[in-house]
Design a protein around this nucleic acid. Structure first.
Lengths: 166, 166
DNA sequence: GGCATATAGTTGCAATTGCAACCATATAGA
DNA sequence: TCTATATGGTTGCAATTGCAACTATATGCC
């Protein structure tokens, strides 16, 4: 939500004469747009999901991760690492998903502390139902503004930030 | 938090034979990285602010908006539009900032319903104190991975999404 | 003027998130 | 083996967010 044109103002205010400003104007514009892009796009995609009476994106992320893991399932900390959610919140998110019958927590053989989480048929079904809306939203709110080359560039650039590509 | 490699899996599951998939693989990679970038970067920047015992980014955004507006101040809905925050939450965010003495709400001459919000000296001071940390975080977590040309490209591309550039 | 509707902002309530403390099991070292 | 520490996960509490209902003023239409 930072406003590009104002962030730039900061330069003169925040820096001492003789010191070059930390991030320059172009950086700040790019930063501001990046932040804003995310906010705008996620809002639009979530709105589409809600309008289709579907659960939020995070549910999709978790279930997708679990489906990929297959029969073996995943440890909670693995899910947390994948969807960038801390253990406290993940624990309760999984509570909700489990309550909806979308996944199951099993006792973990290798580690008595942990649980092993597996997706259920209902979970897989929800993924299938969410995808058309989710995919449609990505196409409508994001894809249409770029060509293939640009999308590739975008992915390549962002992938350089540590923790983004995986 | 969507995982690139898995989103692609979706293609085969969600689409009917003969129909081309809605968003293609490149799109999904770019999308996933965009979402992840935001999450990762904001987390890092917020962490830096917190470590410096400074308030969250949103406070900065609002105060910056107000400082730019100058003596005239802003209506609440104008702030809301600028920082992409709905009126309910903005109202309470402003409560907090006002309680901290960072801004003031005045009665609005032109519109008896509304308030006019102005930044205070303390608000301006907070902006000054936050900037070094915020700017430093942008440099450390974002700027360093790109050159000028790339930053310009990034800004130009994202600016095409409606609602991003302003 | 008088009524219907739209807009600005606030408040109450439920859901989500962040943070800290906590329990249980694993692991490492004496 | 026995203790200290680290790790996986849950729970309680406060702060934040989202949503719906509400108040008050403004605007448009008769």
């Amino acid at each position: 939500m930072p406003d590009e044109s104002k962030l730039q103002l900061q330069l003169s205010c925040g820096s001492v004469v003789g010191m070059e400003p930390k991030p320059d104007a172009i950086t700040l514009t790019a930063w501001a747009r990046l932040v804003r892009t995310q906010q705008v796009l996620l809002e639009r995609v979530e709105a589409d999901l809600k309008q289709a009476s579907l659960p939020p994106l995070r549910w999709y992320d978790v279930l997708l991760e679990l489906r990929r893991a297959g029969a073996g399932g995943l440890r909670q900390f693995e899910i947390g690492a994948a969807v960038l959610l801390n253990k406290h919140n993940l624990s309760r998110l999984l509570d909700r998903l489990e309550a909806e019958g979308l996944l199951q927590r099993h006792v973990c053989e290798e580690d008595g502390r942990g649980a092993r989480v597996r997706i259920t048929a209902a979970g897989r079904d929800l993924l299938k139902r969410m995808w058309p809306v989710y995919g449609g939203a990505i196409a409508a709110h994001f894809e249409q503004y770029f060509n293939d080359k640009e999308l590739r560039q975008l992915a390549a650039m962002l992938g350089r930030i540590p923790g983004v590509a995986r």
